[in-house]
């Protein structure tokens, strides 16, 4: 039973991280109908920025709480800037191009960013500093749930609530929903669609950066390639929940995280990635609209 609970929590943790990344996919898809292939790379850049900033700050001798806050801020800010810039360079000029053009451009961006980090930093795995301390009050449960698991779960929950509030109740959120439904109409009623799209990329990227920071602190090492697999898995989660749907992305992420945890725990860890990829292929074949998504009918 303990093993089960341990797996359960590790599944939730995984799911939280996937959710943080999947939200970026789903929001961007909802608004411009593009699979932002470079999103995984934004997450990776978030993790790298966190590593660099936290190491520099700790060498400068700042206290841990300050390091944590500044690192979180820095990685969110820089990832958001990257997301914004990527959209401006690679997607905005292709707004009216054939559907596959922005996707190819996104694949190119993903390759570019991956190799940019590889060349600018290193191809080796880098150890990530232990930013999350072991809480004393978690001691009795340490065998089933670690402190970093708890931090990840709580952070994700808070972020989700903030995001829901933003989308449901703010002006920006309303503009985002309007743009997602009908971009032309949104333009006609005076919404600056370009700004809305930029904001979507900024929010999605910042969320991915938080995910990157958390997972790096949890696992303890990163390299330039972590974005690819994480990106595809988060995309799987977004599709599983119904791409374009925010609650769907969260639901899909937790389902994927839990199934992965149990499958690797009880079956075998060799095929961990095969499992996620197969799930992706199967959902797209049998239920491309996902669990909470709506099937779309093309107008003729």
């Amino acid at each position: 039973m303990d093993y089960f609970i341990e797996l359960f929590f590790s599944g939730l943790t995984r799911g939280s991280i996937y959710a943080l990344i999947a939200l970026g996919y789903t929001m961007v898809y909802g608004i411009i109908g593009l699979i932002n292939f470079a999103h995984g790379e934004i997450y990776m850049i978030g993790a790298f920025t966190a590593l660099i900033v936290s190491t520099v700050l700790s060498i400068f001798g700042l206290p841990l709480p300050a390091i944590i806050i500044l690192t979180l801020l820095a990685s969110a800010i820089w990832s958001a800037s990257y997301g914004y810039t990527v959209e401006k360079i690679a997607y905005q000029p292709l707004r009216n191009a054939p559907r596959l053009s922005p996707l190819i451009s996104a694949i190119g961006m993903s390759m570019f960013l991956q190799n940019y980090v590889l060349l600018a930093q290193t191809s080796d795995f880098l150890p990530f500093p232990a930013l999350i301390p072991d809480f004393a009050f978690m001691e009795p449960y340490a065998s089933t749930i670690g402190s970093s698991d708890l931090v990840i779960l709580v952070t994700t929950a808070v972020v989700m609530l903030l995001l829901t509030w933003l989308i449901k109740f703010t002006r920006t959120g309303k503009a985002m929903r309007a743009t997602a439904q009908d971009r032309k109409m949104a333009m006609l009623v005076g919404i600056n669609v370009d700004n809305v799209i930029s904001i979507t990329f900024i929010i999605g990227s910042a969320l991915a950066a938080i995910g990157g920071l958390l997972i790096a602190a949890h696992i303890g090492q990163i390299n330039f390639y972590i974005g690819f697999v994480a990106g595809i898995k988060a995309f799987t989660a977004a599709v599983l929940g119904g791409i374009g749907s925010i609650p769907g992305a969260v639901l899909g992420s937790f389902i994927l995280g839990l199934t992965e945890a149990f499958a690797t725990g009880y079956v075998s860890s060799d095929y961990e990635d095969v499992f996620a990829f197969s799930l992706l292929v199967l959902i797209l074949i049998f239920r491309p609209s996902g669990l909470l998504g709506k099937a779309t009918i093309e107008k003729v």
Binding site: I89, A90, P93, L94, A97, S101, P102, I104, S105, I107, G108, M109, S110, M111, F112, L113, Q114, N115, Y116, L119
Partner: peptide, 17 residues
């Protein structure tokens, strides 16, 4: 040759645009 994949990525983006 070190910049190969970087350039390939850039090629995809630039060509599309």
């Amino acid at each position: 040759s070190d910049y190969r994949m970087l350039v390939f990525g850039a090629v995809l983006v630039t060509m599309m645009i």
